[in-house]
Design a protein around this nucleic acid. Structure first.
Lengths: 125, 125
DNA sequence: TAATAAATGCGACTATGTTGCAATAATTAT
DNA sequence: ATAATTATTGCAACATAGTCGCATTTATTA
């Protein structure tokens, strides 16, 4: 399963890279102006996650949001371990710098973290 | 909009109350053995949330889970402010005692918290 | 016991996401 | 260059979660 470089992949990558926010499939589709099929966008995004290029958060609206978060690449930040913020005004999701901290419960194995804070962001305040 | 006491409502309430875990609509439906319609279960659960009887978490599988968490009623615990845990083995969600802590970001208003830790619980370990 | 309005069941609908399959196109080998 | 290989794509179909309108039922109240 060696990955190939395709126009669609590059387009999605550049849209995500140029966004300061995490994006859902439909937001990306709007940006591509219908150049890429729905299913293809999902496949590209899921591949990005598999390959560690992007990460995914599920917000409290039940939707998956994807981000290429440069801060996450910092080795001091465990990947995906930061909070996310969903603004109910502008309906965007952003990665927050703050790391999620929790005490390890006895005999539990924690593999992933999916944390979203919900409210109004500074721009919409 | 005065609430009425109905069999369906009592049944859902008792199922939720007797569960140590947060439950999704379909899990509740299985427990009721088809006695209550899908849409009705959703309406009952949403009413419970409106009335502050139950609370809702959206897990990283995109599904809503509902719980009547006695611990949450403790005034020292802000409602909904605790972590949740999703076990990928037994596919259950539980409320954790630990409170979610975060620093207030400048000019942001935080109204809700939706935090899920994902892994394997002690029973499945 | 009758009037009222909340709750229910049913069907239709929306939205998000996945999958199978044939066609396309990026790699790789010749 | 050209052909062979196989990842990727588009399309349609499907799956699942959740909501909504509306006629009917039923809990409350007058």
């Amino acid at each position: 399963m060696k990955r190939r470089n395709t126009e669609s992949k590059e387009l999605v990558l550049s849209i995500l890279s140029n966004s300061t926010k995490a994006m859902s499939q439909d937001a990306i589709e709007r940006k591509t102006e219908g150049k890429i099929d729905r299913a293809t966008i999902y496949r590209i995004l899921n591949r990005f996650c598999e390959d560690g290029i992007a990460h995914k958060v599920v917000a409290d609206d039940g939707k998956r949001y994807f981000a290429i978060c440069v801060k996450c690449d910092d080795p001091s930040n465990l990947p995906n371990n930061h909070f996310h913020f969903r603004c109910t005004e502008c309906e965007t999701i952003e990665c927050m710098p703050e790391i999620v901290k929790y005490s390890q419960p006895e005999n539990y194995t924690i593999k992933k973290v999916n944390c979203v804070l919900i409210g109004v962001c500074s721009e919409c305040a």
